[in-house]
Computed example of a mutant assay.
Amino acid sequence: MFIKLILLCCVIVSGAAQAMLVQKQRFTLDNFSTENGQTIAQVAVGWEAYGTLNADKSNVILITHYFSGSSHAAGKYHTDDTAPGYWDAIIGPGKAIDTNKFYVLSSDTLVNANAFDKNVITTGPATVNPATGKPYGLSFPVVTIGDFVELQKALLDSLGISKLYAVIGPSMGSFQAIEWAVRYPDAVQRLIPVIGSAYIDTYSAVKLQRWAYPILQDPAWHNGNYYNKGQPLQGLSTALAYITQDALHPDGFNPRYSAMSTDNSLHHSITALPQAWQQLLQHAQTRATYQDANHILYLVRASQLWRAGMGDNWQQALSRVKAKTLFLPASGDLLLPPALSQHSATVMTAAGNAPQYAEIPGSWGHLDGVVGISAVAQQIEAFLN
């Protein structure tokens, strides 16, 4: 049994370079009860792990992923993959989250955005409802950050893992990480929320509604029942373009996209689309080939409803956290600005559990928590060790 739990990671040496190869696993439940009292039948999510689980299962670090991410946090599925997992810079042998020491595990969430990515396993509106033989669509229940955590808890229970050395996650993953420490304070020893906070304020929640609006207004959305007709691509692509822009800081955005004043067509036609917007849309249209419009709507709602403890008083819920904590917002983040992390840290301090705090430098804004994470690798390593 223990051999089966060594799971999935091998180190391939090619010259001086090392590529950590990882295999996707499937976790299933016959049914899952959501926080709003509904039951989902035959739930499945994908997961992967890096490193070796020790004998007493005390070296587990859980990585919880961001809004449009997946469980692919590090390594490659094949040696010829063009890119590794999103946090490969800090997860692996000898890295800040050292897989020579730790067993690092990550799972896809319910309603994962990448519903049609062959490397993602998730249950959501695009999944066929076994009771009807048709995709759930909007009959799928609203799910929350708490639901994501409870499904992860079921996965860990199935592996006999009852303690977490640390829970670490960026953005929406920070929400999940904090909720873990609130719900299971005796199980979580260390907590690192990256580019996130213990709550989402109304301003930020309304900003997220701008991501949902193009989908809801696309006639091809058909009130969520579009699976036999095709994705509402105009609405989905527009939503994904907004998501990309909102995740960037102007210092990272402006050098990458054309200046309006140099776009000759804009001087002659009011209906001409700026080249910068066309570039955003082109990138978004590529993502739209493997993402699902309804899943985006459900993730927006889960994020909008976020507050630690999922009750009426997130400040009181945060007082239950026993874990040593390190907040890592990004200095230039305009989506979930450092003030949200600072407020969360202040509340924890008032409750008697003063966290550490550092900011991720860079010009990418919110994305610095993903693409710029190596800038705080030393802080993460020191905190873990």
Results as ranks from 00 to 15, higher is better:
His65Gln: 08
Gly69Asn: 00
Gly85Cys: 08
Lys76Ala: 12
Ile91Glu: 07
Ile90Phe: 12
Pro84Arg: 01
Tyr86Asn: 09
Ser70Lys: 03
Tyr86Leu: 04
Trp87Ala: 10
Thr82Ala: 13
Ala74Glu: 00
Ala83Val: 14
Asp80Arg: 12
Tyr77Gly: 11
Gly69Asp: 01
Ala83Lys: 11
Ile97Asp: 11
Pro84Phe: 06
Phe67Lys: 00
Ile63Asn: 00
Pro84Gly: 07
Lys101Trp: 00
Lys95Leu: 04
His78Asp: 09
Ala74Tyr: 03
Lys101Phe: 00
Ala89Cys: 08
Ala73Lys: 06
Ser70His: 05
Tyr86Arg: 02
Trp87Ile: 09
Tyr66Val: 11
His65Glu: 05
Ala74Leu: 01
Leu62His: 10
Thr64Gln: 03
Asp80Gly: 00
Ala89Tyr: 06
Tyr86Gly: 00
Ala83Thr: 14
Trp87Thr: 04
Lys95Met: 08
Ala83Met: 13
Gly94Glu: 04
Asp80Glu: 15
Ala96Phe: 07
Asn100Asp: 15
Asp81Arg: 01
Thr99Met: 03
Ile90Tyr: 12
Tyr66His: 10
Gly75Ala: 05
Ala83His: 14
Lys95Tyr: 11
Ile90Trp: 12
Gly92Pro: 07
Tyr86Trp: 15
Ser70Tyr: 10
Ile63Ser: 00
Phe67Gly: 00
Gly85Gln: 03
Tyr86Gln: 10
Lys101Gln: 14
Gly92Ser: 11
Lys95Ile: 11
Ile97Asn: 02
Asp81Ala: 02
Tyr103Thr: 02
Gly92Val: 08
Asn100Met: 02
Ile97Lys: 10
His72Met: 07
Tyr86Val: 14
Ala96Pro: 09
Gly92Thr: 05
Asp88Thr: 09
Phe67Thr: 00
Ala89Lys: 15
Ile91Ala: 10
Asp81Leu: 04
Tyr86Glu: 12
Ile91Pro: 07
Ser68Gln: 03
Leu62Arg: 00
Lys95Gly: 04
His65Asp: 06
Phe102Pro: 07
Asp88Glu: 08
Ile91Cys: 13
Gly69Thr: 04
Phe67Met: 06
Ile63Leu: 13
Gly85Val: 12
Ala96Met: 06
Lys76Gly: 11
Asp98Lys: 09
Gly69Arg: 03
Ile91Leu: 12
Pro84Ile: 02
Trp87Asp: 01
Ala73Tyr: 14
Ala73Gln: 12
Ala96Ile: 12
Tyr66Ala: 13
Ala73Cys: 06
His72Ala: 09
Trp87Gln: 01
Thr79Glu: 04
Gly75Met: 05
Phe67Asn: 01
Gly75Thr: 03
Ser70Phe: 11
Phe102Val: 09
Tyr66Trp: 14
Ala74Gln: 03
Thr99Cys: 05
Tyr77Thr: 14
Tyr77Leu: 06
Lys76Cys: 07
Gly85His: 06
Thr99Trp: 13
Trp87His: 06
His72Leu: 10
Gly94Phe: 05
Ala73Pro: 04
Phe102Asn: 14
Thr82Arg: 02
Ala96Arg: 04
Lys76Ile: 12
Gly75Trp: 10
Gly75Pro: 07
Ala83Gly: 08
Ile63Tyr: 13
Phe102Lys: 10
Lys95Ala: 10
Phe102Gly: 04
Ala96Trp: 11
Ile63Asp: 01
Gly69Tyr: 09
Ser71Ile: 03
Tyr86Phe: 15
Asn100Glu: 13
Pro84Val: 01
His78Ile: 00
Gly94Pro: 09
